[in-house]
Design a protein around this nucleic acid. Structure first.
Lengths: 344, 344
DNA sequence: CTGAAAGCGCTTACAG
DNA sequence: CTGAAAGCGCTTACAG
């Protein structure tokens, strides 16, 4: 601990500035000087103090990523991808989980720890538009995911309506007519699952069907337990569904489990489609058909976008929020076709 | 941006030191002074700059957690628990994933970013003893997990031998005699799965059986795909196993998937036990019997231990490494008993 | 109970 | 191409 620039400068017989220049690859240094400094650095085992640098330059090289739950493999995968993308730019990621609670999301967006980070990527669940509008000046913020806002922030998300329509069309093409949507919320129009629910509705209408409210099930959260509870409710209907489109894979897996417990066949009795393409779905007893967002692209685009904002920060040009749409695909597996696709 | 102590001091008509005292809850301040300072803080919206504080005190309030894969729900859960435990002490967690690679693990243990963090919790897979012995002075390090080392570092891990014996005894009690172990490694005696393999061997011997090398399958990693490949190999044996004890739940789930594809019944044809108690196992088509380490306790003990070391750091008392053993239990589900336990 | 000064380890104008 | 000085925003002895 405690080899500083000054120690290196002393040993190399130069000023601190010259050492700093060498460390930061400043190009115009006499080769002999550079060599002498480099030797001193190696001999002393000097490593620059990032904190001092941060205090001086205002840049920490750290970005924060806030997701609802690390325990949800989708977000764990996304986090891993963001960490990789950030490392690619020489940045480190500080990870927060908000539990999808509005209070936590607001706190995070307000720049909790704002002195430490250069920027923030936030995937909100309950955050409201007004929370965002009241956000004080702070490091750049990039939003992720299905929630939509009227606020001047960049937003990266796949086309959730189109993706949901793709899933529902697949079920319709397979001859299903009573297609449930699992994972709505009660509270607000801007609810988390708003766009996916809209896609469900639009596609049923397009096919000449009637979207029935009985088949829209609200859940408290988006975990397996929520899917299991919702499926139980659906099976109690006088006319149960012949297909389920779930807000995400965890909810779909919970539904699959209840169907298995009841001895119902998937997909013959009930077909199931999820959303996220987490690995669990590929290895489930009945492998899960799902909408696969391009996670690597989402992570890369989010990090690129954030870093662009960070580097543009001094130049106070008029801010035009960006809306970026990564791609998605439908991955068809046993839970809709019954065909025993291998797990890989 | 940019309200500093000095601004607050100016407005409150006191010195910077007094503001600092108020911010840090130094007890002996005249009530009137405190109030005046607090008002200035509120009016200006002052928030202390953590970076400057860090530079001055040498404490950042950040600890790092390095795990092999965030995509493994066990580590995602553990990370969430560590984040909570650290928050409880007012610390923030910087998350790293090493992909279980020796080079990354070494880098991390060497205090990559050591200027930024107060301490490090590392869950190694391939790290060798010599890597640890060559570690230069740096922030306190706490090790997690099954690997054992002869190095002066604290280590938190359940009793892996006892836990493995519990799992294998359960299979023996159910009448199984050809019990496979999936998840060994080729390389070293100090291999990752060493202790669990030893538990498997000891318990089979205790029951009067003969541990057969045919039934020990090495894997490249510890994911579902590894379990699937291993199960495929086991089923190709002239005398396949009637039970599988897997290194972890992901491997077990991969094995379950292959058994389902082959039309084999679980547990009638093959019983399966995993390790970790991740949520996926509870909701699997056939719910998974598993060894459940007390993750919350592991996280809490690791953070407590690390913080103790951080705070003791100045007092250079002789360092006695601590070995802490959190608890574990066996959670029995359908994959061994066939009883349709509800998913919750 | 409070103040003035020094310094944590860097980088950034400003000179030369 | 390199140096000497100032300063990022705090806290820590040292006084009083």
């Amino acid at each position: 601990m405690g080899v500083s620039l000054k120690d290196v400068a002393l040993r190399a017989g130069v000023s601190a500035k010259t050492v700093s220049n060498v460390v930061n690859n400043y190009p115009h240094i006499r080769p002999g000087t550079r060599e002498r400094v480099q030797r001193a650095i190696d001999e002393l085992g000097y490593r620059p103090n990032a904190t001092a640098r941060h205090l001086r330059t205002g840049r920490s090289g750290i970005i924060a990523l806030a997701v609802p739950e690390l325990g949800n493999p989708y977000f764990a995968d996304l986090a891993a991808a963001v960490i990789d993308a950030a490392a690619h730019h020489g940045h480190t990621v500080l990870l927060d989980h908000t539990a999808g609670l509005r209070a936590n999301e607001t706190l995070v967006s307000r720049g909790f720890r704002s002195h430490l980070i250069d920027g923030l990527i936030l995937s909100p669940i309950q955050l409201e538009n007004e929370d965002l509008l009241r956000r004080p000046d702070g490091p750049p913020l990039v939003l992720l995911g299905e929630r939509e806002y009227d606020a001047p922030y960049d937003h990266i998300a796949i086309d959730n309506v189109a993706a949901a329509r793709l899933a529902v069309r697949h079920l319709i093409d397979l001859g299903r007519r009573r297609i449930a949507f699992v994972g709505a919320r009660r509270e607000s129009l801007r609810q988390p699952a708003h766009l996916r629910l809209r896609g469900w509705r639009e596609e049923i209408l397009r096919a000449g069907g009637t979207p029935s409210d009985d088949l829209v099930v609200a859940t408290d959260g988006y975990d397996r337990a929520d899917g299991a509870a919702a499926m139980t409710r659906l099976l109690a209907l006088s006319e149960p569904p012949d297909a389920v489109f779930a807000y995400n894979d965890l909810v779909a897996l919970g539904a699959l489990r209840v169907l298995a417990e009841r001895g119902l066949r998937v997909p013959q009795d009930v077909a199931v489609v999820g959303f996220d393409d987490i690995e669990d779905g590929r290895y489930a007893g009945v492998s899960l058909t799902t909408v696969a967002p391009d996670k690597a692209a989402i992570a890369r685009l989010a990090v690129d976008c954030l870093i662009t904002r960070i580097e543009a920060a001094p130049a106070r040009a008029p801010f035009v929020p960006r809306r970026i749409l990564p791609g998605h695909t439908l991955v068809v597996r046993e839970s809709t076709t019954g065909r025993a696709t291998a797990h890989d």
